[in-house]
Computed example of a mutant assay.
Amino acid sequence: MSTVKELRSQEEIETAFPIMRQLRNHLEEKTYVELVLEAQIKEQYRLFALYENDKIVAVIGFMPMITLYNGRFIWICDLVTDEKQRSIGYGEKLLRHVEQWAKDHKYHSVALSSGIQRTTTHRFYEEKMDYERVSYVYQKSLVDTEHKDVQ
Rank of each mutant, 00 (worst) to 15 (best):
A49T: 08
L68C: 05
P18W: 00
R96N: 12
T3S: 11
T31N: 02
M1I: 08
Q139M: 13
E43A: 15
R8D: 02
C77Q: 12
T67R: 07
A16W: 04
G61P: 01
L35E: 07
Y45A: 03
K5I: 13
Y107H: 08
R96D: 10
D54Y: 05
E34T: 12
E99F: 01
L27R: 01
K84T: 15
R86F: 03
T121L: 09
E132V: 05
Y125Q: 06
V33W: 00
E6L: 14
T119D: 08
L23H: 00
H122P: 14
E6K: 15
V110L: 01
D104S: 14
P18S: 06
M129P: 14
W101H: 03
E43Q: 09
D144L: 11
V98W: 03
A39F: 09
G115I: 00
N53I: 06
G91F: 02
D78M: 06
N70G: 12
Q139Y: 15
I74W: 07
E11D: 14
A49R: 07
L94V: 04
K42Q: 13
P18Q: 04
W75E: 07
S113R: 07
H26M: 08
S113K: 07
R96G: 04
V80P: 05
F124D: 01
V59K: 00
V57K: 01
E92N: 09
T120Q: 09
V134P: 13
D130S: 15
Q22H: 08
N70Y: 11
L142A: 07
Q85W: 01
V98M: 02
Y107E: 01
F124K: 03
I88N: 09
M129Q: 10
R86N: 10
M1P: 10
K84H: 12
I66D: 05
D54A: 11
Y51K: 10
W101P: 10
M1S: 11
N53A: 14
I19V: 12
D130T: 13
S113Q: 06
Y136V: 12
V137C: 10
N53E: 13
F48I: 04
V150N: 02
K140D: 05
C77R: 10
Y51Q: 05
L7N: 05
S9K: 05
I13A: 03
N25M: 03
E92Q: 11
S109F: 07
D149I: 15
E11T: 10
E6D: 05
V36N: 02
H147D: 13
K42A: 14
D78Q: 05
K103W: 09
Y138S: 00
V80M: 01
N25E: 02
E126K: 14
R72M: 08
Y136G: 06
E12D: 08
V110Q: 04
T81I: 10
R21V: 00
D104A: 15
R72T: 06
I76K: 01
N70C: 11
R96A: 09
T145Q: 11
R46Y: 14
M20P: 02
K148P: 12
T121F: 04
L47E: 02
T120N: 11
T81W: 05
H122N: 03
E43W: 08
G115R: 07
S114V: 14
V80E: 00
A102S: 10
A111M: 13
N70I: 01
A39T: 04
I116Q: 01
L47I: 07
M129L: 14
E43G: 00
I66Q: 06
Q117K: 08
P64N: 07
L37G: 00
M65Y: 04
L37A: 03
V80C: 00
